[in-house]
Simulated assay, not measured.
Amino acid sequence: MTPVIWRRADPSDAPALSLLGGATFLASFAHDHPGDALIAHIGKAHGLDYYQAALADPEQHVIIGETALGAPVGYALLTPPNLPVDPEPDDYELKRIYLLGPWQSGGHGHALMEMALEAARERGAKRLLLAVYPQNDKARRFYARQGFEQIGRMTFMVGDVPFEDMVYARKM
């Protein structure tokens, strides 16, 4: 497998993150999300403006993984928590963690999660939260191996279509 070079993203990475975010979301959910809703969601939640704002916000932390040739293959986005659970004072949220399919093995997901956990610890987080689609069995198994447990449920809008997600947490 091609090695991945992980680093903290900077403002120049916004175009790559927008493409990668849209591609990974589409690859993950095209099988059971309506096309129009999926396209609307990707346009809004993975647009260039979204990633420019995230990279400019000191409260957010973005990690990007690239091949040696500079092609983006994975990323993680951490933010202050915005999930419908009782927050603890030192919570942080892993809002997104995605790898392109060919890089979803060989320890790349574990390496990205370790970097995300370290970023959360550096911010003083005592608990990391995330939301996951219940039908995404592969992701749910990965999170369980990483020590996450379900603590709630929420509605996640994709365009104008509601989906139910599970909220997970992991003590640091």
Rank of each mutant, 00 (worst) to 15 (best):
E88C: 01
L69H: 02
T67V: 07
M157N: 06
D160R: 10
T79N: 01
L26S: 10
D91S: 02
E149P: 00
P15N: 10
Y143K: 09
A56M: 02
S28L: 08
H108F: 08
R7S: 12
A125M: 11
A23T: 14
L128F: 01
V158F: 07
V167D: 03
H110W: 05
I64C: 08
D57C: 12
V161S: 08
L94H: 07
F156W: 08
S12H: 14
L99M: 09
P81G: 01
Y168M: 15
P81M: 12
L94Q: 05
A23W: 04
A14L: 07
V158S: 07
R170Q: 12
H31F: 12
F142E: 13
S18I: 07
S105K: 14
V132D: 07
F142N: 12
F25I: 01
A131P: 00
N136R: 07
D137K: 05
G159D: 05
A125V: 06
R170T: 05
D91C: 06
P72S: 15
G159A: 05
D86M: 11
A71S: 06
Q150V: 10
E59R: 12
E93M: 05
M154T: 15
P80Y: 00
Q104I: 02
L117K: 05
A76R: 07
A116V: 11
K171V: 04
V4S: 03
A37V: 02
F142C: 15
K44W: 00
K138Q: 12
P84I: 13
S12T: 14
Q150S: 06
M166Y: 08
L100Y: 03
A9W: 02
Y51N: 07
G70A: 10
L38Y: 01
F163M: 06
D57I: 02
A144F: 13
R170V: 04
F156Y: 15
Q150R: 14
A111V: 01
T2L: 10
